[in-house]
């Protein structure tokens, strides 16, 4: 494992923990898209089914379990415990527009036409666009709390770091996986606009608000 891969995993973990802590400490999930969180729970569930079939390392297995557990905990906090603070009115992105094309594409373009492999591929496609309901929510309300911005930055950085990891692996091992690579590029591109706002505003101590 190279440093980019490790930093990517770490950044992903930090994002997930920031979100959980934000909701827990403020007793509120306002500004957070429950729909994106449902998509992430689906992504982890369909990708990590190999927990039961393929052992890679203790690190790998523990991270998978942590990601899955945290994502279900987040969904529970939003739709269960702190439901009263959830922004139903603004979180209106139609997730079937992401789920259905990802599923169709996973059936058409995959490494191997087997159930586990199709589910893995589906999770990769779905993850690349799963943040859209959250970005849609931010654009609808026109602003994001600073802690939510940190969450989005850590979550976006994770796939960017993975891209560097794949570049590294390509040159050092000749390894590449086009499905993950192209989806990873799309995923990172979707964050670009946000990255720009984050660096130009949030890092200078201002709250992230969109121009009217």
């Amino acid at each position: 494992m190279n440093v980019f891969r490790f930093l990517g995993d770490l950044s992903h973990l930090v994002a997930i923990v920031i979100l959980l802590l934000k909701i827990w400490k403020t007793r509120s999930c306002s500004g957070i898209s429950g729909r994106s969180q449902i998509l992430f729970a689906i992504v982890f569930t369909t990708r990590y089914l190999d927990l039961f079939s393929n052992f890679i390392s203790v690190y790998n297995t523990s991270m998978k379990i942590v990601y899955i557990t945290c994502s279900y905990a987040t969904v529970y906090l939003i739709y269960g415990k702190f439901k009263a603070t959830y922004d139903f009115n603004h979180d209106t992105f139609r997730i079937e527009f992401l789920l259905v094309p990802s599923a169709i594409l996973a059936f058409l373009v995959n490494h191997d036409f087997s159930p586990l492999e199709i589910l893995w591929t589906f999770s990769i496609y779905l993850e690349s666009v799963a943040i859209l309901p959250q970005l849609f929510l931010v654009s609808k309300t026109g602003e994001a709390e600073t802690i939510t911005s940190h969450y989005l930055f850590a979550l976006g950085s994770y796939r960017l770091l993975y891209l560097l990891n794949w570049l590294w692996r390509y040159f050092s091992q000749g390894f590449y996986d086009l499905i993950a690579l192209l989806s990873g590029i799309l995923q990172t591109v979707l964050y670009c606009d946000f990255f720009y706002l984050y660096i130009s505003k949030v890092l200078k101590g201002k709250k992230l608000s969109l121009p009217a």
Partner: peptide, 10 residues
Amino acid sequence: EYNVYDHDEL
């Protein structure tokens, strides 16, 4: 040899 189906990443 690296097999992409191993999916050793997260």
